[in-house]
Write a protein that binds this DNA or RNA. Structure first.
Lengths: 146, 146
DNA sequence: ATCAGTGCAAACGATTTGCACCTCG
DNA sequence: CGAGGTGCAAATCGTTTGCACTGAT
């Protein structure tokens, strides 16, 4: 948490105040964030400093290009989110009622062979989202609609 | 194909010229289409007739509300597409090179139990996209980069 | 000193909305 | 006839871009 060791940032990239702040926000995030969310958090972190939203977009694009962050689109509503590339990937279960996103503890595809399904297609990655109802909302629904 | 029997449209919905046209375009589509694509195809179909793009959006929203069509966001690039609800669902393999979308012949989840993974979450649906390279692009890549 | 990075404001594409008119049922 | 549907133009949202200035290397 208070791990303040130097960040190993990509060669040839200026490590500006703005980039440091965006990086720090991403580092502390526990889930993927939209550009605007990141912008707000950066403003909070760097109180008083001037900031442009477009700069955040450009920083995120630059980070993505260097493989520092990955950009993602949530299938449910098309929200675009960014997160630090920590290796590995996460899938989510999305509640259709309260829109909470619950990270799956593991990837179901660890246990499945995809070869036959895809014919001549060479699979290098995948995205998966589950939809349904979380425990709270299911209980609520059962109470209101018998 | 030349199946012109009456459409069974939802009660309480006015079946206007515009809605008929949008419906017909969706019916003839072999893959999900964006609102703008639908708009263009409707213009083509109903040559000469006046049309507003906003009407297409409103029609699609109305259709979705009645469960006639389903709206979807492609994970790769966030494109929003619509297709007729024909029951069942399709997954796609997306080529990272040429961006072709290849429909999978079956759903990999037919063979997998999701229960344990999701704890207290009740799964009612899911979305999946595979990423990789189609045969043509793979061959091309192997030729250019040894 | 140089050139990548930045702030600002304007441009953009996709989608939505307010309003007066039109049309299906 | 009347509610619901439509066309049009303007508004909105998230994101991108042109330009002159600034600051990291």
């Amino acid at each position: 948490m208070n791990d303040k060791r130097e960040i190993r940032y990509p060669e040839g990239m200026k490590w500006t105040r703005q980039r440091k702040n965006v990086y720090e926000v991403l580092q502390e995030a526990t889930e993927p964030l939209s550009a605007v969310q990141i912008y707000r958090l950066v403003e909070e972190l760097a109180e008083g400093e001037e900031y442009a939203l477009s700069t955040v977009y450009r920083i995120l694009a630059a980070f993505e290009e260097r493989g520092l962050v990955s950009k993602d689109t949530w299938m449910g509503d098309g929200t675009v989110v960014y997160e630090l590339n920590r290796g590995g990937h996460t899938h989510y279960a999305v509640c259709l009622e309260c829109h909470k996103r619950i990270a799956l503890p593991s990837c179901p595809f660890a246990h499945i062979r995809l070869g036959r399904e895809t014919g001549d297609f060479t699979v290098t990655g995948h995205k998966l989202e589950l939809y349904g109802y979380c425990r709270e909302c299911k209980a609520e629904k059962e109470r209101t609609e018998p």
